[in-house]
Design a protein around this nucleic acid. Structure first.
Lengths: 228, 228
DNA sequence: TTTTCATCATACACCGTGTTCGATAAAAAA
DNA sequence: TTTTTTATCGAACACGGTGTATGATGAAAA
């Protein structure tokens, strides 16, 4: 564990530039924001900007990375608590909506309609890679799946992202719990159909409201921890 | 009917610029293409370009509009033939995949990963507005739909577009018929769930493979013709 | 043939980008 | 505290793309 306590000015400057970028995205959309705008808004010298980031994209990416690692830390903590005590079952989708809602100002700038497609493509790739493995594993049972795994995974990720962006752009008219429910209503039957109705019935033969999420909860256990 | 036969040079120049743009999108992606690139590739004077289009976006839009009106004409023709003789049932999704496949070079440039998000947003809005009415109509039956109409429609359009772009970006590994089948497998159960399983059973109580499409076929009848 | 007008080349002002460099001052180290 | 380090500043710069204006040219239409 390395504690890197560097110059206070660095954090201050970066914070100013991040805040400026977010405000500007909300105002005029990511594409329309120029580095010059950020400089003026943050009241930072031109050379200072390029001392920290190569360009606009890298600044936005770094904002997103902060959020992502924050989310992963939280999931890590929840998972750890679940190991010891008996916490409620982990619901990754619900947690995602909660996390998005908690930082909705930032996410609205980063992933809303106003933002560029860059982050969304990045997110799509991220989630796709997270899910393609487990999905393939689940496919093992059926010899001739009705729909190829890649298509199903791509479809599922697109659905989730489209729901999240819709939620943000509509100023979150429903609580995260309702969004999680909507996602389940829309996706569970699709998953069952795509996997040839061979969804692993680990404890129940029917598919009660927790079944899909139970799968994703198990996936998080495997996919999240060995990495660290 | 006005036959506007204007200067032959106009069509020639426009065609050159369109071809140049398409080729360049395939090569380096829409965002990276500059007006200067188009000028060089098409071997057209700078002022000539601006005499036809305001900017890069307008050129791309006009390409897309050509394709869209071509598609609508074809649907119009099919519908007319269906009125008189007994043609097979109209399947708008299948037709869409066929049309996309027939002009896959153009669509790959326009709607593939290489392209900007502009056209996709445009398409999304177009399809959403096409579907939101009929969906609302279908909702009439259920007092408390499990999922709001706007969300369902948004979700369905996102699914279709994500399938189409996946198909294009993957170099169309399946024929349109298979893609239509995949779309049906993925979407039919979702629609049934979203509409509270009150899908209009007009002639059958079960929902055979044609049921969703039967609905969209009826929708096309109403939505496409009164406009002209 | 005459007229029309699409095209062309050139020139231009404007703006955003990304880099360089020496001076300044704030923070960290001594 | 003094000294050292270094993040920041501001100005200048070259580069490239944008969109406009203009007069000449020549191809198409009348």
């Amino acid at each position: 564990m390395k504690e890197k306590k560097s110059d206070r000015r660095i954090g201050r400057t970066r914070r100013l530039m991040h805040e400026a970028l977010m405000a500007l995205i909300v105002e005029k959309g990511y594409e329309a924001v120029t580095v010059q705008d950020i400089l003026d808004r943050a009241d930072v010298g031109r050379s200072t900007f390029y001392a920290h980031y190569r360009d606009k994209d890298e600044l936005l990416l770094s904002s997103f990375e902060q959020l992502r690692s924050l989310f992963e830390e939280q999931q890590q903590a929840i998972f750890a608590a679940r190991r010891t005590g008996r916490e409620p079952e982990l619901n990754i989708v619900l947690e995602l909506f909660r996390h998005t809602g908690e930082h909705h100002r930032l996410y609205k700038a980063i992933a809303g309609k106003q933002s560029g497609e860059m982050i969304l493509k990045y997110l799509h790739r991220y989630l796709y890679n997270l899910l393609i493995g487990p999905h393939t594993e689940m496919m093992k049972g059926s010899v001739a799946p009705p729909v190829p795994v890649e298509v199903t995974t791509h479809h599922l990720v697109s659905s989730l992202l489209s729901l999240i962006t819709w939620w943000l752009d509509s100023n979150m008219p429903f609580p995260p719990e309702r969004m999680d429910e909507i996602f389940r209503i829309l996706s569970t039957p699709t998953l069952e159909a795509a996997f040839g109705r061979k969804m692993e019935g680990k404890n129940t033969s029917e598919y009660p409201e927790g079944s899909v999420m139970a799968f994703y909860s198990r996936f998080i256990d495997r996919g999240c921890c060995p990495g660290k």
